[in-house]
């Protein structure tokens, strides 16, 4: 799987709509939350259409719930496919999680037990979704603060098994890896080093909130240094992967969010440079 040529993007969020439409800032791409635009009309789609005219948009979902034991919601898939046809997104992503039972919704990204049964179930659902939507699908590792007695493998082994079984890509969220590493006490670099580079289609970076005994993935702060270190390692291993900064609460100005995202370009440029320098040169005749 070759990296997509998109660069560093940011999430399209309501407080920035006016700025983006009036100032037309130079941004590689915007990520949208699919469920915010799965409507019949009105302002959400009117804004989206204006954004699409000027920018590449990539869809990121929070409601597919591929880990649901009772399978996928095909009404949801139909709405998703309709939106895909509108946005021309090059791929879509959602989460390695479950979130509803018998048609009642948690509206949360709930953690999977890392068992073979769960891996097979979520992989089967992802495969069906990707086939139905007819577009590459990437699944994102979520942050968690609960682990199951039933776990049979590590999170990174589970993620790898799922994407291999489903033949889908990974949206690698390095902030989520860091958050979970603190909450569960594992080495986050071991996680990043285990991931197959060829599977990674996109990377998420974000900030979080630290409490006395746990961390919550709140997307309301700048990215911290340990997360940048994980990001640097991921780029080193995977190459220049399209990267997205998430900032979803206490959202500052557009410039502040964009500048935070662009810090990632330092790691990209270094990787690009190294790739270029290491490329075999043609012999120069004396």
């Amino acid at each position: 799987m070759e990296p997509h040529p998109l660069g560093i993007g940011i999430g399209l969020r309501l407080p920035h709509y006016d700025h983006i439409l009036s100032e037309k800032p130079d941004v590689s791409w915007f990520e949208i939350i699919s469920e915010n635009f799965m409507v019949e009309g009105g302002r959400p789609l009117a804004i989206l259409d204006r954004i699409i005219e000027q920018y590449q948009v990539v869809q990121h979902g929070v409601g597919l719930y591929p880990g649901n034991a009772d399978g996928l919601d095909f009404d949801h898939l139909k709405r998703l496919k309709k939106l895909i046809q509108r946005t021309n997104t090059p791929w879509i992503s959602d989460h390695l999680c479950w979130g509803s039972v018998d048609g009642t919704f948690s509206h949360d990204l709930l953690p999977m037990p890392y068992t073979t049964e769960a891996a097979k179930r979520i992989a089967a659902n992802l495969r069906v979704a990707q086939d139905y939507l007819e577009i590459p699908l990437a699944v994102e590792n979520v942050s968690s603060c609960a682990a199951f007695n039933a776990d049979e493998m590590s999170e990174w082994e589970f993620l790898t098994e799922v994407v291999d079984l489903a033949e889908v890509g990974i949206l690698l969220d390095v902030n989520n890896i860091y958050v979970s590493s603190i909450n569960h006490g594992f080495d986050p670099m071991e996680y990043v080093d285990f991931i197959q580079p060829g599977r990674v289609m996109q990377i998420h970076i974000a900030g979080h909130s630290k409490y006395d005994r746990f961390i919550i993935d709140t997307h309301d702060h700048p990215v911290i240094d340990p997360v940048w270190k994980l990001y640097a390692r991921a780029i080193e291993r995977c190459g220049p992967i399209p990267t997205l900064l998430e900032w979803d609460a206490h959202i500052p100005s557009f410039e502040e969010v964009h500048n935070e995202a662009l810090k990632a370009s330092a790691y990209w440029d270094a990787e690009y440079l190294k790739t270029t320098l290491n490329r075999p040169q043609h012999a120069v005749p004396c």
Partner: peptide, 21 residues
């Protein structure tokens, strides 16, 4: 269902999801 984390007992882990819900 849950095992303790390095800093939280299982009920506290579940409580975090309960309150977020």
């Amino acid at each position: 269902l849950l095992r303790p984390s390095p800093t939280l007992i299982p009920a506290e882990c579940l409580e975090l999801y309960h309150r977020q819900y």
